[in-house]
């Protein structure tokens, strides 16, 4: 049995410690907001926070996550009110929506470490996340919007 702490809740999972965290989260724990996109750390759809870092859960073994704080898209905020989530909604960023769990989890690390990101900072943070629908321009705009909201204290952030 391995204990995984996901979104501040402990789960006892009986899995191969080499199983990628992605499948443990989706198939065993049953939180399906984290997506499978490529399985080889190329697309970022599976991004979760492991002790606050935006790791690719498709190549991160369960054994690495044991004893650490895992946050998935379901735990990014309590009421879908992280500044990024609000901005994503206000700019109608998603199309099919499949990649956006990962996009948001990546953007959240950027915004935490750099509350006023430039376009270049956004490039440096977000080029690991693929969006096949091509919502990139809106992602960029939404990150700027979220940064402004955070700065102006419009949300609890």
């Amino acid at each position: 049995m391995i204990t995984l702490n996901v979104n501040n809740k402990n789960y006892e999972v009986d899995v191969d410690p080499n199983m990628p965290l992605l499948w443990a989260i989706r198939d065993v724990i049953g939180l399906t907001g984290t997506k499978y996109g490529c399985g080889v750390a190329q697309c970022g759809a599976c991004t979760v926070h492991l002790d606050s870092e935006a790791v690719r859960s498709c190549v991160t073994r369960v054994s690495r996550a044991e004893g650490q704080k895992i946050t998935t898209i379901e735990g990014l905020s309590e009421n879908n009110d992280h500044p990024l989530q609000i901005a994503w909604n206000e700019l109608s960023v998603p199309q099919c929506g499949y990649c956006h769990s990962g996009q948001l989890m990546s953007a959240a690390v950027l915004l935490r470490e750099n509350p006023n990101p430039t376009d270049e900072d956004i490039d440096d943070a977000m080029a690991g996340n693929i969006c096949r629908c091509g919502t990139y321009l809106r992602i960029r705009k939404a990150i700027h919007l979220a940064a402004n909201m955070q700065k102006n204290g419009n949300t609890k952030g």
Binding site: V40, A41, Q42, G44, T47, E53, A54, V55, R56, V59, T60, R61, R64, M105, S106, A107, V109, L110, E113, N114, D121, D123, D124, A125, M126, A127, G128, N129
Partner: peptide, 30 residues
Amino acid sequence: HTMNVQRGKDGKGLYALKCSNCHQAENTAG
């Protein structure tokens, strides 16, 4: 390196693209 990965101040990458976000303690199979 694809994905516009950057060195960063400490050499460990930047933001959501830190080295260890993908590069694990051991090789990933495949």
